[in-house]
Design a protein around this nucleic acid. Structure first.
Length: 308
DNA sequence: ACGCTACCTGTAACCATCGT
DNA sequence: ACGATGGTTACAGGTAGCGT
């Protein structure tokens, strides 16, 4: 009888067996797990058939376990307790004590703006939580659905495509607008950045792909103008350094400009034509949606993003 | 007093069929 | 291909009653 397959076995029989071995009494074992005495008697008969052992034998001093049954008592008890733990509703996420790792992905822009606050908050409130940040500026759908990524930050249309993929959730966390910067002491741009100078001067551009056109060029096209992009760099945070020692004009996210302008000696101007901003979102997989730790992380992200 | 058996009933697993 | 639907079957667990 060594080849008992679990798939053909009513696992409730093991619960009945545990009760029987604990009580050594069919009627009390039945009461213990909410069965009637005959039902437990049936269960015992099935167990006897299944295991090829009488398991409990009736004696003058009550139902006595066979050696086989006695040998099963403790391991069975442990196994069922373990099962009960597996099935038990997971404890709600407690940031103070939780051990957990989150893998996040985003561009250096979000790393600079949001992450210092976010990481500080996590360190303070959830010291057992580790964070892995990956650099990701394209589709996150794959890594998210495969579980390699918990949360990604960026533009929804870039991260999950034009038609939000199945099983992916997105939430807008903050809005950003564009400003223009040049170095202090720029030979042309003094008190104001005019449209005429803007079009005439060479530009730097953050372009992940190297494509030298962006939202600025689209806005210019609308009013029938163009500009020359002399330099593209693939990182948001390198761009301000490029204009520090050149006469290039850079249009960049306002939060980045605010951070770097004093440090690098840059002058900040409103764009001389309307340039639409963008909405930063976080995206995650449906599977993580009701995970209490993940929900907590999203709540913290939202709060810190709001405070930006 | 207590466990076992006969018989009955409700349920769920199984399978074929249907519609999308 | 897939899930919904309905009929059939197998069986766990109930009651009643018997046996030790």
């Amino acid at each position: 009888m060594h080849d008992v397959h679990l798939e053909g076995l009513d696992l409730n029989l093991l619960v009945a067996l545990r009760a029987l071995l604990t009580e050594r009494h069919v009627t009390r074992a039945a009461a213990r797990i909410g069965l009637t005495q005959p039902a437990m008697s049936h269960a015992l008969a099935r167990l006897r058939q299944l295991l090829g052992d009488p398991l409990l034998v009736r004696t003058a001093s009550g139902m006595q376990p066979t050696p086989r049954a006695e040998a099963m008592r403790i391991p069975l008890d442990r196994a069922l307790e373990e099962l009960e733990r597996v099935i038990a509703r997971p404890a709600p996420f407690d940031p103070k004590t939780a051990k957990r790792q989150f893998t996040l992905a985003t561009s250096d822009y979000v790393e600079l703006t949001l992450f210092p606050r976010l990481v500080a908050r996590l360190r303070a409130e959830a010291p057992g939580v580790d964070v892995r940040v990956l650099h990701l500026v394209e589709r996150a759908t794959g890594p998210l659905s495969e579980g390699r990524l918990d949360l990604a930050f960026g533009l929804t249309e870039v991260l999950v495509g034009p038609a939000a993929a199945n099983g992916i959730r997105a939430q807008r966390i903050f809005d950003e607008k564009f400003v223009c910067v040049v170095r202090n002491g720029h030979p042309v741009v003094k008190r104001k950045l005019t449209l005429e100078d803007f079009v005439r001067l060479p530009h730097a551009l953050v372009s992940l792909s190297g494509d030298p056109t962006g939202v600025v060029d689209e806005a210019l096209a609308k009013i029938g103008k163009t500009r020359r992009v002399a330099v593209t760099v693939p990182h948001f945070l390198v761009a301000p350094h490029v204009v520090q020692d050149t006469d290039l004009v850079l249009t960049l996210a306002e939060r980045v400009a605010r951070m770097f302008s004093p440090m690098l000696g840059l002058a900040q101007f409103a764009p001389p034509l309307p340039i639409p901003g963008f909405a930063m979102s976080m995206v995650w997989h449906e599977r993580m949606h009701s995970d209490s730790a993940h929900a907590w992380l999203r709540k913290v992200v939202k709060e810190e993003a709001k405070a930006l």
